[in-house]
Structure formats: structure tokens, C-alpha cells
């Protein structure tokens, strides 16, 4: 598992990368009440705003961590956005991306480095 400065986690499953937010981020956001996901088969660039999360408190953007293609989104979040709080590292995932080159993931933090970031 890799982590971004924006509190996303990236998990490689075969040739795709699953993206979600960390437990720390979910706690900070508070109760998630709405998630707007991208259309599958969209090409995105690193830094693009691809997901909007609305918590009871505020709206936040989730950025594409890398260049690639969104191949699948977690439709369950439409009816049950609370999954992001209940199981941020599992059932609360947002989307899956296909990358040309998985080695770009090496630049991201590992768990120890991330835990250091959130102190």
C-alpha cells in the first residue's frame, strides 16, 4: 500500500490501482453524506479533481494521484456514502485506475512514512 500527501491510499491489484482515502482523512472529514465519482473510462492527469466528497461539515476534492485511466468506480457509495467512514481502507474505496507504468508508485510514501506525516 502507498500513500499520498493528500491522504489517499493506493493499492495495486493486478494491473490496476485502487484508490481510497486513509482512516485519518475519513476521521478528519467527518460523516460522509455524498460522493460524486468520475465516469469510468475517463483519462485523467495527476492532480485532476476526480472525486468530490461532501461530509456534514464541508465539501472536499480528491485528486487523481497519477496519470491514467479510470476503469471502475465504487457505485455502492452513491447509496451508501457512509462506507467511507465505516471501512475507508476496504469497502469505502473510490475508483480503480489503469496506469501505463506501475513504477510511478515508487515515488509515494509507504506506511511508515505516512504515519510519520500524520504524527
Amino acid at each position: 500500500m502507498k500513500y499520498t500527501q493528500e491522504h489517499e491510499w493506493l493499492r495495486v491489484e493486478g494491473d490496476v490501482v485502487v484508490v481510497g482515502i486513509t482512516e485519518h482523512a475519513a476521521t478528519q472529514l467527518g460523516d460522509v453524506v455524498f460522493v460524486e465519482l468520475p465516469e469510468p473510462e475517463t483519462m485523467v492527469a495527476s492532480g485532476d479533481e476526480v472525486v468530490v466528497i461532501e461530509s456534514v461539515k464541508a465539501a472536499s476534492d480528491i485528486l487523481a494521484p497519477v496519470d491514467g485511466e479510470i476503469v471502475e468506480v465504487n457505485d455502492k457509495l452513491a447509496d451508501n456514502p457512509g462506507l467511507v467512514n465505516e471501512d475507508p481502507l476496504g469497502a469505502g474505496w473510490f475508483f480503480k485506475m489503469k496506469l501505463d507504468d506501475l513504477s510511478v508508485l515508487d515515488d509515494f510514501m509507504d506506511e511508515d512514512e505516512y504515519n510519520e506525516l500524520i504524527g
Binding site: 467527518g30 460523516d31 453524506v33 461530509s55 456534514v56 461539515k57
Partner: peptide, 12 residues
């Protein structure tokens, strides 16, 4: 205090 451990939804 904007919220406590319960969180906004449960507090509401």
C-alpha cells in the same frame, strides 16, 4: 468545540 467523539451526525 465543533464536535466530540460521536461526530456531527450522531451528535445531531
Amino acid at each position: 468545540p465543533v464536535q466530540y467523539g460521536l461526530g456531527v451526525m450522531k451528535e445531531h
